[in-house]
Design a protein around this nucleic acid. Structure first.
Length: 437
RNA sequence: GGGCUCGUGGUGUAGAGGCCUAACAUGCCUCCCUGUCACGGAGGAGAUCGCCGGUUCGAAUCCGGUCGAGCCCGCCA
C-alpha cells in the first residue's frame, strides 16, 4: 500500500512504500540521498546499496518511481523521518533534463515571464509555483465555504452566448453553427435571472475579454467570482457581505498557509473586520492634495490613485482593503441602480481595492422593469435584442431588490501571494499574444 | 492604438567598440566523497550574443530595419 510523504512519521519502524517523482539526487559516495515528490510534499530516501543507486544512473528529475523501505526516525533528516534500506523501482524513466529547475525558485522578473510560461508545464512542478496554486485553491475553498454558509447556491451559466454585450468590454466573436455568437464576458445577466429562482447565487467561472490591454492586471481569460443576492435593504448589505467574505477568506488563508506565504515573500496582512470607505470624489481630492497631480476632473479612478488610496488606507485605517464608493453616473452600467440620494448623480456601485488594484465591483442593481428599459435605451441598448429579451423577462415576472459583485479571483490570488503580475497567479494564462501552453 | 525598455549556452546573469578564441552561477556528463538538505571537490560538454542589413581596419557592444517579449498609458475588470 502506498503511503504519502506526510504520513511517514506515523509508520516509524515499519516497512512502507512511497511513490512519486524523483525531485533531487545528492550522491555522497557511499551514501546517497534522494528526494521523492508526491502530492503531499517531499520524502527523503537514504540509499547505501550501490546497486540501488545505480538504478538512478542517467535518470533525470521527473522520473516516476516507487521506493520500498523502512521508515526511520532521524533528527538529521529534514522532516525528522526518512526512508532507509530502500529498494527502488523505476515506473517511468525520464532521460531528458527538465527545461527549468524545479528545486529552486524560478525567476518571476518581468523580462523572464515569457520563459516562465513557455516552460509552464514543467515549471509548475516547482515547489514554489505549487504554493501559489495551493493558495489559489484555498481561496476558492473558503469562498465556497463562506457563501454556502450564507445560503448561496452555486450555479453554472453558459459561456457561449448570443451576440449582446452586457458591459463595455470587447467580446470574442465566434461562429455558432452559422449564427453569430460570442464568449461570455461576464455571467451578469444570468446571475440576476437566477436571483428570481434562488435569491442568493454565486458562480466561479471563466469570463472572456477581448480588450487589447497589455498590463500586469489584464488577461483575456479571467476567473470571476460572481455573486448576486436578493432581498437586500440597501447597497450597504452588498458591501458588508463582500467585506465579510473577503475578511473570512483572507484570515483563513493566512492561517492555513502562513509558511507558504512567508516563503513566497508575501506581505504581512493588514486588515480589520470593517473596510474603510471613501467616495471617488474624496479619493480624487486626497490624491490631488497629496501628490499635486490634479485628478478632480476624472470620472473614474486612475490606476495610480488605486495604488495610492490603498497605501493611504493601510497607514490611515490599518486596512489593505478599501472601498471606493459613489462612482459618477457617467461610468455606470445600465443594470446598476442610480443613487436616489443625489438624484442619480452617482451610482450605487463600489469598487473593492486591495493592495493597489481593483479586485471587485459591488453594485446594487436596478430591479424595476420600466426603469431598466429606460436605462437601457438611454445607453443606446436595444431591449429587444435576443441577448436581452430573456433577461428582461425575469424582471417582468418579478425580481426583488438585489445586488452583488464581480470579483477577480486571479487578481486577488496575485495580491494575496504578493505577486506583481496577474499572469503569475494563473496556471496557463491567456493574453493578447499567448494562447499556449 | 500611443510611449518607453529588453532579447548573450537549457535556466538566471556579466560583458557596453579591440582585453571575447564570449565570462560567472546553476543545470547536464565523468570521476572522488557515509548525513546531505542551494552538499563539497576535480575534470568535461554546451552560445556563430533573436534575425537581416549598415557604419568601422575591427561589432555581443554603435546605427537602421525586422521579429519576439516586457512595462506604463488608453480601453477594460
Amino acid at each position: 500500500m502506498r503511503i504519502l510523504s506526510k504520513e511517514l512519521k506515523g509508520h516509524v519502524g515499519k516497512k512502507v512504500m512511497v511513490q512519486g517523482w524523483l525531485h533531487k539526487k545528492r550522491l555522497l559516495g557511499g551514501l546517497t540521498f534522494i528526494n521523492v515528490r508526491d502530492r503531499a510534499g517531499l520524502v527523503q530516501i537514504v540509499i547505501k546499496d550501490k546497486d540501488e543507486v545505480e538504478k538512478l544512473r542517467g535518470l533525470q528529475v521527473g522520473t516516476v518511481m516507487k521506493a520500498e523501505g523502512t521508515a526511520a526516525l532521524e533528527p538529521r533528516s529534514p522532516g525528522g523521518v526518512e526512508l532507509h534500506d530502500a529498494v527502488l523501482e523505476i515506473m517511468v524513466p525520464v532521460n531528458e533534463e527538465p527545461p527549468v529547475e524545479i528545486d529552486k525558485p524560478l525567476s518571476h522578473k518581468p523580462d523572464n515571464l515569457d520563459t516562465l510560461f513557455d516552460n509552464r508545464v514543467i515549471g509548475l512542478r516547482n515547489l514554489q509555483e505549487q504554493k501559489i496554486f495551493k493558495i489559489r485553491a484555498a481561496i476558492l475553498r473558503y469562498v465556497r465555504e463562506f457563501l454556502s454558509g450564507q445560503d448561496f447556491t452555486e450555479i453554472n451559466s453558459p459561456k457561449l452566448v448570443a451576440g449582446a454585450a452586457e458591459s463595455g468590454a470587447e467580446v470574442f466573436k465566434l461562429d455558432y453553427f452559422g449564427q453569430e455568437a460570442s464568449l461570455a464576458q461576464s455571467p451578469q445577466l444570468y446571475k440576476q435571472i437566477m436571483v428570481g429562482v434562488f435569491e442568493r447565487v454565486f458562480e466561479i467561472a471563466p469570463a472572456f475579454r477581448a480588450e487589447l490591454s497589455a498590463t500586469t492586471r489584464h488577461v483575456s481569460e479571467v476567473t470571476m467570482l460572481d455573486i448576486e443576492m436578493g432581498f437586500i435593504e440597501s447597497h450597504e448589505d452588498v458591501l458588508n457581505m463582500v467585506q465579510d467574505m473577503v475578511y473570512y477568506v483572507l484570515t483563513n488563508v493566512h492561517k492555513e498557509y502562513a509558511d507558504e506565504l512567508k516563503s513566497l515573500n508575501a506581505p504581512e496582512l493588514v486588515i480589520g473586520k470593517k473596510f474603510p470607505r471613501y467616495t471617488v470624489a474624496q479619493i480624487h481630492e486626497l490624491y490631488t492634495k497629496a501628490t499635486g497631480k490634479d485628478t478632480t476632473a476624472e470620472k473614474d479612478l486612475i490606476p495610480d490613485e488605486e495604488k495610492w488610496i490603498c497605501e493611504y488606507a493601510k497607514k490611515h485605517d490599518g486596512s489593505e482593503a478599501v472601498y471606493a464608493t459613489h462612482f459618477p453616473k457617467e461610468v455606470h452600467k445600465f443594470y446598476q441602480m442610480l443613487n436616489p440620494e443625489d438624484d442619480g448623480e452617482t451610482v450605487l456601485a463600489a469598487d473593492l481595492l486591495f493592495r493597489g488594484v481593483e479586485i471587485a465591483t459591488c453594485p446594487m442593481r436596478e430591479h424595476n422593469y420600466d426603469k431598466m428599459i429606460e436605462q437601457m435605451k438611454s445607453k443606446g441598448i436595444d431591449p429587444t435584442h435576443p441577448g436581452f429579451s430573456h433577461y428582461l423577462l425575469a424582471f417582468k415576472h418579478g425580481l426583488p431588490p438585489h445586488g452583488g459583485c464581480g470579483f477577480g479571483i486571479d487578481r486577488f490570488t496575485e495580491k494575496v501571494a504578493g505577486l506583481n503580475n496577474i499572469k503569475e497567479a494563473i496556471l496557463f494564462p491567456r493574453d493578447i499574444n499567448r494562447l499556449t501552453p
